[in-house]
């Protein structure tokens, strides 16, 4: 059974009363809220996730509520609570679902220190994962959304989880965050893509989320070998081009994009050297998604990783 078996009314009731367990990759989140737009977002984007009943344990206990202040009557706000406490300032109520997504990212990036966590999209084909680390604005999520609509498996749009013991890449498939022009670009690139309604005037501009492919959810327990580390950058009017990057330089750039590299000390260094050792490293510039997909299709698997 998955979440799509619940009607919106049943889902809203569960979220409001006892809360519900949301299983995303290896993490279980207990979520409670009475905010209708959150129930609608979960019904739309988490439809293919397993419906988890009555667990004794959750990694994260999260709720979204209306803060008890005067704004409640004028310009309503919502707050994200983790273990009953707000790690962030409240946001306009219209941003409830994006705030849930950002909050869930924060839960993992701030607590899951049994992984090396890199700010990167991760996709997989043929057992090998391509890690795409990049700062905001580089086109990482747009490229990721296009690739998972053309046969690549989504491991994560935002957080690459590298297992510290064996260096395997652990999936965390969740809705893909799209911003500004990327929303229309992906909707036109893949008309069947399910995308939530646009929310404007957020701290990231206009945002929407794309539903992850069902197959990526079904395979959420299948880890992958590191295959490639590719730093994407969207540039207008350039051909799609992979440029080989020295492993040492790739190492430093990945470390710059990691949430907990410093915190992990020598384990972080060893895990990252393992990732870079196993991967071919490239800079990638592109302007056309079709050309980018062709370039990724032609990637040769590393010879010695498996």
């Amino acid at each position: 059974m998955n979440i799509s078996t619940l009607t919106l009314s049943e889902l809203g009731h569960r979220l409001k009363k006892a809360g519900m367990f949301l299983q995303t990759g290896t993490f279980i989140t207990h979520l409670k809220t009475s905010i209708p737009s959150v129930a609608e977002g979960i019904r739309l984007l988490y439809a293919d996730y397993p419906l988890v009943e009555h667990l004794d344990f959750a990694d994260f206990h999260v709720s979204l509520t209306y803060p008890r202040n005067l704004r409640r009557w004028l310009k309503p706000q919502i707050q994200f609570l983790f273990d009953g406490k707000p790690p962030f300032k409240p946001l306009p109520a219209d941003q409830a679902f994006p705030m849930l997504e950002w909050g869930l990212n924060w839960c993992v990036s701030s607590h899951a220190n049994h992984y090396l966590i890199i700010h990167a999209a991760v996709i997989e084909k043929g057992g090998y994962a391509a890690v795409l680390p990049a700062p905001p604005g580089s086109g990482k999520s747009t490229l990721c959304a296009a690739l998972v609509n053309r046969g690549w498996r989504l491991l994560s749009d935002e957080l690459a989880l590298i297992h510290i013991g064996d260096g395997r890449i652990v999936p965390l498939p969740r809705p893909i965050s799209l911003k500004n022009q990327s929303i229309d670009i992906i909707q036109s690139y893949e008309p069947d893509a399910v995308i939530s309604r646009k929310i404007s005037d957020t701290m990231k501009g206009t945002v929407a989320h794309m539903k992850p492919p069902a197959n990526s959810i079904i395979r959420a327990n299948e880890t992958a070998h590191a295959g490639w580390v590719i730093f994407p950058k969207y540039q207008s009017s350039v051909p799609a081009q992979l440029k080989k990057l020295s492993r040492s330089r790739a190492f430093i750039r990945i470390a710059d994009n990691a949430f907990n590299y410093s915190l992990l000390g020598i384990k972080g260094f060893e895990t990252l050297t393992g990732l870079v050792d196993a991967s071919q490293c490239y800079d990638f510039t592109y302007s056309s998604l079709e050309n980018a997909i062709e370039t990724f299709s032609a990637l040769e698997p590393p010879a010695s990783s498996k």
Binding site: S246, R247, S248, R249, I252, F269
Partner: peptide
């Protein structure tokens, strides 16, 4: 230390 080609981290 870890070295690749002509560089080292």
């Amino acid at each position: 230390f870890h070295s690749w080609d002509n560089e080292c981290v």
